[in-house]
Every structure is written in structure tokens, then in C-alpha cells.
Design a protein around this nucleic acid. Structure first.
Lengths: 358, 358
DNA sequence: ATTCTAGGCCGAATCGATTCGAAGACGTCC
DNA sequence: GGACGTCTTCGAATCGATTCGGCCTAGAAT
């Protein structure tokens, strides 16, 4: 809009231009900006004035990070599309916690996905200017990602990932917690109990929980929670959902509840969103919760629009995120943080009751 | 853990090392990786093999972005702590939309805050390796931020920001929408109507809505929505909340509803979260909604735990984010995208009714 | 057989700042 | 008055890759 009176430079000024204008060397100008190193106040002021006069916007972060070898950015690798993560309250809470945990670094948070299609994203886990990353969830690509990070020398922390690679891991007692929930159902008198599980494999195959799928599965979370349920109900089976969402829970539950004759009296869902879908399916079919069907979830979030106080295994998502953030800080400080395993608590709401009398 | 058999290099291998091992020049090795440029398949394979042998993790993104002048990262500037944004469903929805909008770029999303304390964060709006940014909300620091971005030549898009600087802006009809909501209340018969507004100034001063605060305010959203209400109720006043949260709405409403004699028959809240707080305050005080108090919100989100179907001005948050993302794509393509103004729709729920008969 | 063409590869410059060792200026102490 | 120490400043190397112009060679065209 305004004419630039004395700006012959077509491109943006660099630190060298500022230095020239201030009559000092580039190194001195650099010191004036970064503050490290002894520079007289007079010189410093001259440099800053020159910068202002030239409209210099400060050191280029790209050049700076190349030279310094760090970018001040921490990556968060989501196993799904970023969009999807924003819809999952558990993920949001973890991000929240991570933010809190890495606050001392003053670092930015870069959201990444690990879809496995290298060409698709300009910035992916293999090529992102991050100083460290937090891996959320255990995608099947995890091993590949970890290998890539290792080669690049980028420290990483995993949340709920079965890395087996010596990364610090932040997890919860998936097995024990589900066992506790299942035991609660057993004590209520339930014997016909079914599962709605999280995806087992990379393809997020949905459908009946078959032994093959169980075997081929790579998702530790789904597997551990299943194992916990099996301790109480050795023959328990059910449906595998394609994701943690109300919609998927709805579909899975429709399949489980279709036949009144074989219908379970209780369903263990591996997430609260799935549980909400199960309850919705029950409503559709005119099945009363908890009178005719008990439902137990996992996570301990509030689900939009759900009228029930869900019985669930409440996990400290924010604390998990925070622990992961703190582990990152620790790693960057050259330490070797321990893995952390949180415990979930059984919250008894109004979606569980003794099975209907026959 | 494992001994590195033939790795004399103490530090990580670089492209030059790979090139040397493969017996080609660095430039050829670069071409082999980036794919651009004519390289014979044989040579390319030799380079890739050498890289694998050396455990080379691919080109350093820092060096690459320095040379190329872009980083493949889009920044999102939140006016509050990142944590806070995760608690606000409107923000989440916008982030969701932005993600969708910039998907064609394959860029990463870097979350930034603009607190104004330059030293606090290693990576802030003044020094983040971003190709473009989306500014969400109109912080008072906005002008400073925009100036910094302009100097650095980083294109930006503002959502709900009164930039006045020629940036593409994504907004909604705050004024008209609130006017419509207020008019609805007037037609129901309300005359004693009060406001619970969003913060007006940088300090997020809360308390009674005074003319001074109105004047000093820099927050365009709060101001526009206020002006819309004034068109219907010229003398309307109320409380200013310190943020968009249930807690703040609760506090503000307590003040408004304290005195039964002067109590309003309707409250216009400038966000749904605030409205939820208002309703909670009414519950506390034993005031029936909507029989004794009508409440109208703004946003059109679902509020956790709110039993009512809130009457509100429903705005397309996801679409706003998407539009912002698309504008970024357009800007990076060298075009000049237009500003976009969405319209909100009045959703009539069960929190509004005619005023109680006197 | 000679010239032209084009694919394939290399050398060197470049991106913009940071960092470290050394040199200069200035004042103090012996 | 000279040696020494400190405070500033400078020069040059470095970070790791990309890119552009040019050179070389093999095959095609005349």
C-alpha cells in the first residue's frame, strides 16, 4: 500500500542486511538478537534500530533450527486422521495433558498422522522438524515409525503402544481394569456377556470377534482388555468395531442384539463412545438399560447426549498425557524416564444391574 | 544395545555420507531422494542401498526447509493457552475444519499461542517455522502479531478477527444473528433481558458491563454481538465473563440473578458454554428454565451434561475452519482469497418461553 | 563418419543464521 | 612505562540439503 522509500531489496532483509546497516558484523548482530554473549548496550541498540528500519522480522527459524539442531517443536503422532482425533474426547484429553507436560519446554505442538502413505503428506513422521514425538495409540505402523525415528535420532514416548523397543511407555492397567469390570458384572449375576472391542488390526476390520482376528491383531489395547475379560468369562466373544465411535458401537451392538434368543444380558464395550452406541442400539430395539441389558464402558468421559451415567472404567487421560509430556522433557534433558502405568477405577453408574429374571 | 559393526561415524550420517558411499555426488543423491530430476534407476537404487546400509534416516527437514524456503507446516494461533482451546468445543470444531481445509497441502498443523510474553515460548508466533497461519479469535495482540507476520512475509487468515489489514477474514454474522435472537425474545414478550458476554478486553476483565469496558474493549466478537442485542433492547446490560466456559457463565449469572426484584426474565449468553452456566445458576437458585427464565446461547454445540435443548444461534464452526483452511491453500498458491461471512441460524430449543405472568 | 540431441551426473553456489577461536581496544596493576 | 586481563567485536567455518548451469557420453539423424 505504501511505497517503500529506501528499500531496494526485492526480497526480505536478512540478518546480514541488518548487520551491514548497523555497521557491525553478522556475528555481532546475531548475538544482539539471541541475547547470548557479551554485546554492549549501544551496539545492541544500533542493531535493533537497524532491524526496525529495515523491517526485519527476526531470525529465520528455519536457518536457526538447522544450525542449532533443534526446532522447538514436539510432534504428536495420531494413529488416525487428525480430524478423527478431535472427535474423540480421550484423545483431546491426552493432548491437553501433553500440552501441560511439555509446557516447561515452551515448545510448539505439531499434529502428525501416521497413515503409512509416505507420499501423501509433505510433513509426516518421517520428515517433520521435531525434537521429539509422542506416539498415541499403537498403530501397526508403529514399528516402522519407531525405526524411522530411531534412525533420525529423535526421542519418542509412546502412550498405550506396545513398542517393545525400550521407549518409555505411558499406559494403564487395561487388563486388570477390564477384569475388574467383568468381575463386577459376574457378581451382579451375569453369565451371558458379550464384547464390543476396539479394532484389532491395521485394516480396522470390523465384524465378529474371531480367533483368527484375535491372533492376527496387533492392537495391544484391544488385546489386553480382551484378556482381562477372558479371565472372568473365558468364553466371551462379541463384535469388533472399526473405531472408537458411537456409530461403530451402534452397528456392533445391532449385530449382538439382533437375535432375542441369544441376546447377552450385558455388554462390555472397550470405550465409552462404543458403549454409548450400544445403549443407542438398545434404545432402538426397545431394550431397557440396565433392566434388560447392562452396559459397561471404558474411559470415563462424558458422552454428548447420553442420558445415562455410564458404568465405566475411568482412566486418567489427562494425567497420561501429562506423564508423556514430562517424559519428553526428561528425554530431551538427556535422562532416561521410566515407563508409567496408571490404574483405572471402576465407576458404577446407572447402566448396570442384575440380569433380568428368566 | 547392539554394537554398531562398521559405523565409525560418531554422529548421524548425512546425505553427503550416503553419496560418498554410493560413489555419486551429493547432488545426485539428493535427486535420488527427492525424485525430481533425471536419475537412472540403477544409480537411484545404489543411493538407496547406501542409505539403508548407513542407516540414513532421510533428508534433514530443517536443512530442506531452509533451502526450499518452506516447511510444510501451517500454524494455528490460539488466543489462549492450548489447553483452554481443547476444552472449548467451538475451537475443536474449527481445528477440525481447518485440518480438512488444508488437507490438500499435506501440511502439519502447529498449535501456537499468542500470549504476548515473547521470552516464554521457544516457539511462538514470531519464531515458528510455518508457511502460513490461521489466527483464531481476536486477541488484542492481534495487531502486533499481524505486523510480525507481515514483516516475515507469512500469509495469514483470520477467523473472527477484526484485522482491518487486508487479511482474508472468515466470520459470521455476529451482529445480525444476535439481533435475531433478541428479536425472538422480544416477540415472546420479554422486556427485562440481560447479557452475559464474552470478554471485552485483553485482561479478560469480568464484572458488570460498564460503558468504560465497552469503550475500551478490543474484542470484536463480543462487541458485535452486543450491538445486535442493542438494536432490539437499546438499554440492555449485563455481566462480562472472563472466558467462554460453564464456570464463568455460572458466576456471571449468579450476579444477574441474585436480586429477585430486579431479576431479568431472559438472558442472552454470548456462547453456549456461558448459557449452560446460566442455566446451572438458575438451577442452583431454584429458578425454572424456561418458565421463569429464558436462556439463549450462541454457537450451537452440544454441552456436556446439559439436560436442556438450548435455544441458540447455531454457527457453522467446522465450515468456518474449513473455509480458513481453504483460504490458506489459496494464499499459498499465490491467489487472493475473498473473505467469507457465514450466517448463523436460530435454533429454538426448550430454554426459551414467554416471560412469567406477573 | 560426423554432427546433433538429450539424458545423466557433477561442482559450486546458496539458503540464513549460529558459534568458536582469535584479534582488537582499553584500562589496571606492578 | 610495559605486561596483563577483560570486554567487545569480527572472520570464517558450519549446519545439511537443494538447485542451476555445464559437461560428458551414448545413440540418433544426416
Amino acid at each position: 500500500m505504501q511505497p517503500e522509500p529506501a528499500a531496494p531489496a526485492a526480497s526480505r532483509p536478512t540478518l546480514a542486511d541488518v548487520a551491514a546497516k548497523a555497521g557491525v558484523s553478522a556475528s555481532t548482530a546475531s548475538l544482539a538478537f539471541s541475547g547470548s554473549g557479551p554485546v554492549s548496550d549501544a551496539t545492541k541498540q544500533r542493531v535493533l534500530d537497524a532491524a526496525a528500519a529495515l523491517g526485519y522480522g527476526g531470525p529465520d527459524p528455519r536457518a536457526r533450527s538447522l544450525r542449532q539442531g533443534r526446532s522447538g517443536i514436539v510432534g504428536v503422532v495420531l494413529e488416525e486422521r487428525v480430524r478423527a482425533a478431535f472427535l474423540d474426547p480421550v484423545k483431546i484429553q491426552m493432548l491437553d495433558g501433553i500440552t501441560e507436560g511439555i509446557a516447561p519446554l515452551g515448545a510448539g505442538l505439531l499434529l502428525l498422522t501416521d497413515t503409512g502413505e509416505p507420499g501423501e503428506n509433505a510433513v509426516n513422521i518421517e520428515s517433520a522438524p521435531v525434537d521429539a514425538v509422542v506416539l498415541i495409540g499403537c498403530s501397526p505402523r508403529l514399528a516402522v515409525s519407531i525405526e524411522a525415528l530411531r534412525r533420525r535420532g529423535i526421542p519418542a514416548v509412546a502412550i498405550e503402544g506396545d513398542t517393545g523397543e525400550g521407549l518409555p511407555e505411558i499406559s494403564i492397567d487395561n487388563h486388570q481394569a477390564t477384569r475388574r469390570g467383568a468381575d463386577y458384572l459376574r457378581k451382579l449375576g451375569h453369565t451371558r456377556v458379550a464384547l464390543v472391542t476396539l479394532p484389532f488390526d491395521a485394516a480396522r476390520t470390523r465384524g465378529p470377534l474371531t480367533p483368527e482376528l484375535e491372533q492376527s491383531g496387533t492392537a495391544a489395547t484391544a488385546r489386553d482388555r480382551l484378556a482381562g475379560a477372558r479371565e472372568i468369562f473365558p468364553d466371551i466373544t462379541g463384535q469388533v468395531a472399526g473405531a472408537s465411535s458411537i456409530e461403530e458401537g451402534l452397528e456392533a451392538a445391532r449385530a449382538l442384539l439382533a437375535d432375542p434368543a441369544t441376546r447377552p444380558t450385558a455388554i462390555i464395550a472397550q470405550s465409552d463412545l462404543l458403549a454409548a452406541g450400544v445403549i443407542r442400539a438398545a434404545e432402538e430395539l426397545g431394550i431397557a438399560v440396565p433392566a434388560e441389558l447392562s452396559v459397561i464402558g471404558f474411559d470415563g468421559i462424558r458422552v454428548d447426549g447420553l442420558q445415562h451415567d455410564l458404568t465405566t472404567l475411568s482412566q486418567p487421560s489427562v494425567a497420561k498425557g501429562r506423564a508423556a509430556g514430562e517424559a519428553v522433557v526428561s528425554l530431551l534433558a538427556g535422562e532416561s524416564p521410566e515407563s508409567v502405568c496408571f490404574t483405572s477405577t471402576l465407576h458404577v453408574g446407572d447402566t448396570t444391574a442384575p440380569p433380568p429374571a428368566r
